[in-house]
Structures are given as C-alpha cells and as structure tokens.
Design a protein around this nucleic acid. Structure first.
Lengths: 112, 112
DNA sequence: TTGACATATTCCCATATAGGAATATAATAT
DNA sequence: ATATTATATTCCTATATGGGAATATGTCAA
C-alpha cells in the first residue's frame, strides 16, 4: 500500500518539495494569485493549481476570489515555513552527524 | 514524477502513518528492539525493518547493536512527536474551520 | 559444526501520485 | 454575442513506494 492520501494528511501535503516551495513563496503573509506563483516558481499552471488545491484541502492555505484571480495565502499561525525548515535542518544535521549510523556491538544485552 | 525520495527527505519520512506510529512508540525516550516494535504495532518484521531504515537514514532515529538485537531510539531533541501532533492538529483544525473554503467574489481587484 | 533466533534485504506487485496536454469553467472586456 | 484572461479539472503515463514472501545476514547457544 502506498502512502496515505495526500489530500487528507498535512504531512503528505508538505512532503512534496514543490509544495514547500509554494509555502515559502507565501511566507511573507501576502496573498498571491496563482499566476504570480506560476511565474515565480516556474511551475506549469495546472501543476500549480493542483498543488494549491492540496494545500488548501489540508488547511495550510486559504483562497479568496478577486475578480478572475484567486488569491492564496498562508494560514497565519499554522505551519510556518520556519518551523518546517527547523524540522528539516535538525534532522538533516543529525543524519550527517551519524553518516551510516550503526552503533557498535555490545555484550550488554538488555533484559527482555 | 512522484514524490521526492523518502530516504532523502525528513518530510517524506514522516509522511508515512506507520512511521509516525513508530515515532510515537519511541516517544518515551527508551530504546526499543525491532521485535518489540513489531509486536506492539502489529507490523510485519520486514516492514518494520524498512520503516526503521528510512527513519534512520533521515536522522530521526538511531540504532545500536546489542547482541543480536538492534535497539532503536528517537534522536532526542529532534522531531518530537508532540511537534508532529501540533502541526497536524493545527492544520486539521484550520481545514475543518473552512470546510470547502472558496472565499467570496469581489469587485475589488487588487493591483496586479 | 548445527540450530535457533533477530534483523535486514531482495524480488515482486498493486496503487497513489506528480506532471503534461488538452479541455472546462469562470470572469471580464469589447 | 465573441474574445481574452485566469484558474481548475480531466485524462494519461511514468515512477516511487509500501507491503508480502522468501531469503540473506548476523549472532548467540550447544
């Protein structure tokens, strides 16, 4: 069985690198139209729409209509980009500290 | 192209529900042998090994060998389960607040 | 040595998914 | 009305992935 549905799960939503890019692009707090994001991130328009759809469904962003545009904004207070960066960087640091981490053998077999 | 490699990316590592279960099971700080986790979480041994492998590669857990067992423990200070829960709950709350969020139409088209 | 136990790895398959192309929907302008 | 702009959706495909079964590796005991 592959991963849990991307549309139901925040973690799956932010597992996609492009979506994290989008989150970063929205980090300023300003609302952005789909077209702006398409240009800034060099993603095709359909792809962008799909990613934004996923982010919206899990509650990371919200939309508002303004004329023919749809403005997406990060949901303030939730899932700040810097939190994501922290998580990533912390784990990556750990991973590189212990290159292929195996631990050494031991005679001390814990009870159980 | 599907998602980014699960073995390179912390976010993909925690995107898998079973792996979050494992993280929770390790939350106490104690080290657990693979077999214990297999029993507790009712996951097959190979599956467990694979998940632990992923978690290890991205730096979320570390292993130490004790006799024929391998003891896995959460990397203290990194990626605490409660952080994951917070992220998830916050986003889920937001998502349910705005059931199918669309925003209302407007005449006010912001300057590009 | 052989055997039992603990964990990792390989092979295979079903399935979800990201992306592209084309199309649909919506809103404004003329 | 038609045209144009902006975004969403549908269809398709290639690919990564999680899980099971079987096997390999490793470790200890006799």
């Amino acid at each position: 069985m592959p991963r849990a549905s991307t549309t139901t799960d925040v973690f799956n939503a932010i597992a996609e690198p492009r979506r994290r890019q989008i989150i970063n692009a929205l980090a300023g707090g300003r609302a952005h139209a789909v077209g702006e994001l398409v240009t800034r991130l060099r993603v095709s328009q359909p792809a962008m729409s799909k990613h934004l759809g996923v982010l919206r469904k899990v509650g990371i962003v919200s939309v508002s209509r303004h004329g023919r545009r749809r403005l997406y904004r990060l949901n303030a207070g939730e899932l700040k980009p810097h939190q994501l960066n922290r998580i990533k960087q912390q784990a990556e640091r750990k991973a590189s500290e212990r290159p292929a981490d195996e631990g050494r053998p031991a005679k001390d077999t814990p009870k159980t």
